[in-house]
Every structure is written in C-alpha cells, then in structure tokens.
Amino acid sequence: MTSGPYNYSYIFKYIIIGDMGVGKSCLLHQFTDKKFMADCPHTIGVEFGTRIIEVAGQKIKLQIWDTAGQERFRAVTRSYYRGAAGALMVYDITRRSTYNHLSSWLTDTRNLTNPSTVIFLIGNKSDLDGQRDVTYEEAKQFADENGLMFVEASAKTGQNVEEAFLETAKKIYQSIQDGRLDLNAAESGVQHKPASPGRPLAAQPPARDNCAC
C-alpha cells in the first residue's frame, strides 16, 4: 500500500448525492472499478470506494461515499456531508423529478459542508438521450447560476465519468494551493500525507493548531 501508485499525498473525500435511482452507485462503481484496468496492477484488494488519481503530479486518493437518496432519509443523512471536500450532485436526465429536487439537495450541501467544498453537477444516463426529460441547456443554466461545475455523463458507457471526478479533484487541489482550504480543519475533507516525497511546501497551511495543553 505504501509503494508505487498507492503512495499518495492527499486523501479527498467525495460524497455522491441525488435522488434514488439516478445512478449514484453506478457512477461510483464505474469510476472506482476502472482502476483495475487503468492505473495499477490489481494485486491489492479493492479498498472501499476509493481510487487514486494524479493531479498536477500529486497522487491523490479519492474516497467516495455513496449516500442514500430516498426522500425519507434526507433528514438523517446529514452526517454523510461531514468533512466532504467534493460533492457530486447527480440527477437523471430522463426523470424530471430528480432534476427538480436538485435545489433541495444543493441547499443541504451548502448548509452541511464548508464553503470551499466543490460541488459538481452530473446529469446521468446521457446514453439514454432519446428519453431525455431535462435538456442540457437547462441544467447548464442551473449550474451556472449556482456556481457549479456541470457535465452530462453516463455511468453505463463511462462517458464523462472520469472527467467529473478528475475535474472536482483538480478544483479541490487548486483551492488547497490557493490556501482557501484549511487542511487541518477536521471538516476540510482533505487529509495530507506530509511524509510523501515531493510534496509542495505551499500545501502546508499557515494556521496550525498547536495545542499541547
């Protein structure tokens, strides 16, 4: 775990939110299971919901939490949001209702995460273009209004899935570089592994919690 592609510098925590049946877990599996084919020899067992990617020469381990999307669990799933650095908000382009619920999901996300959390809007099931119920433009406009990144993706074909996760990671990494994200805050959703070689010194946050009693 500590050598080769597993030697990562950061851990980013993502959550995937959205209505039930929009394909959250399919997106997750599409993304995480691909690592067998792409990145590394699959000698080590699958770690739950993770994948290691590379952003700007930094190995980053993405830890992605799937969430339950049922309406009745909405009230109790707040603890999912705790410490998420990125939130992938998913709707189903073939079901209008899932798109309509986005605003409440967004509200939850905004309320329950820290301001620097990157929110990415994903319109899933882009392969089912014939059954489309939500237009790209409509969603794009919603994303722009709320300052979200947006992409239409297909968990089935894998189209744009990778990009969504990678773009989110890049944005998070950027905010770390900018110092907007406090790594030492427990809720930042980012863990730094300083012992890794070649880490940028800029990543060291200025504010350190130096309590030694």
Binding site: G21, K24, S25, L28, D66, A68, Q70
Partner: peptide, 10 residues
Amino acid sequence: APASADDLLP
C-alpha cells in the same frame, strides 16, 4: 447489481 447506499441504509 452493485449495492448502493439506497439499499444499504434501509
């Protein structure tokens, strides 16, 4: 099918 949180939580 991959187990999702939609199923896991209930």
